[in-house]
């Protein structure tokens, strides 16, 4: 009789590699294709749409030149958009952390009135349809004159990321033994000093991971950038600039892909750098016990 366990084990051993190969192909291929198209000449792409390889000799960087050079010089001005995106994302990250670190500490360690309700409020914000928020904010910011300003956009990103950020930090803070803080209090630290000198260094990996998370959300965001900034080209973020580029006439697909690469590369770099940083940070904490 054939042993079911043995047969299945053998079949699954092969199947597992098929699945792994399939997953890698499906997740990486679109990004590879994006990079490939961005350096192929457009005429050649239209003639041979089925090719998935181009020798370095055929590569052209004119697409990147068109995307990055300023609008005045006949380009698409993505350098400017990159700067806008960087300003908004960094500002949103800093402000979110400034609000969420003490906030997370409060919900983890301190008993105060309304603590339970706060959790519910944050969960609601996290799960709320952003399109519902878009309407009143569109109206409100129009009235306040904040629409069309990077500042207004930053505030919206902060409001949307702070609850999740507090939630993530709280999960980490609960693992820090309370006795450390009590010891600090015995040494005469005030609460704020304890937070800054004891809790914050211990929570550094979580804070870092959080910062990257907020940065990614802000960098990738599209809806509010579209609603708030679309009228003035000088304010566009990279996501918005790219979306507007696709609607433009006379913009070839290879230029569009070059723009996509410009938009994606910073996130991919941050993501792969953070992977290492995160594991290092976590293991460093682990051997301290």
């Amino acid at each position: 009789m054939i042993d079911r366990a043995a047969v299945e084990t053998r079949v699954l051993r092969v199947l597992r590699w098929v699945v792994i190969a399939g997953l890698v192909l499906v997740t990486l291929f679109p990004f590879y294709y994006m990079a490939l198209l961005s350096v192929r000449p457009i005429e050649e792409v239209l003639q041979n749409p089925g090719r998935i390889w181009a020798a370095p000799a055929e590569w052209t960087l004119s697409t990147y030149r068109e995307v990055l050079s300023p609008a005045a010089g006949g380009g698409q001005g993505f350098l400017r958009f990159l700067l806008n995106s960087a300003i908004v994302s960094v500002a949103a990250t800093v402000v979110t952390l400034l609000a969420s670190i003490p906030g997370a500490y409060a919900v983890t360690r301190l008993r105060f009135t309304g603590r339970r309700q706060v959790h519910f409020l944050f969960l609601a914000v996290y799960l709320f349809p952003s399109i519902l928020l878009a309407i009143p904010l569109f109206v409100l910011f129009t009235r306040l004159g904040l629409r069309g300003s990077l500042f207004g956009l930053t505030i919206v990103y902060v409001a949307q990321t702070v609850p999740v950020s507090i939630y993530m930090l709280r999960n980490y803070l609960t693992t820090i033994p309370e006795s450390l803080e009590e010891a600090a209090a015995m040494d005469g630290y005030t609460r704020l000093q304890t937070l800054r000198k004891v809790v914050l260094p211990l929570a550094a990996p979580a804070v870092m991971a959080n910062a990257l998370y907020v940065f990614m959300i802000a960098w990738n965001e599209f809806l509010f950038a579209l609603l708030f900034l679309v009228e003035d080209r000088a304010d566009w973020t990279v996501s918005l600039g790219l979306a507007q580029l696709s609607g433009g006439i006379e913009v070839s697909k290879t230029v569009l892909m070059a723009g996509s690469v410009v938009l994606t590369v910073p996130i991919v770099i941050i993501f792969f750098a953070a992977e290492r940083l995160l594991t290092e940070g976590l293991t460093a904490g682990a051997d301290k016990g």
Partner: peptide, 28 residues
């Protein structure tokens, strides 16, 4: 004191969420 500190630490978050999320939703 703990109660006050808790609310104070959370206040920046609460203000932003209230102004940019809760009030706009009510307005919707």
């Amino acid at each position: 004191r703990e109660n006050r500190a808790g609310l104070a630490y959370l206040s920046p978050t609460l203000i932003v969420v209230l102004v940019v999320v809760v009030l706009p939703v009510l307005w919707t």
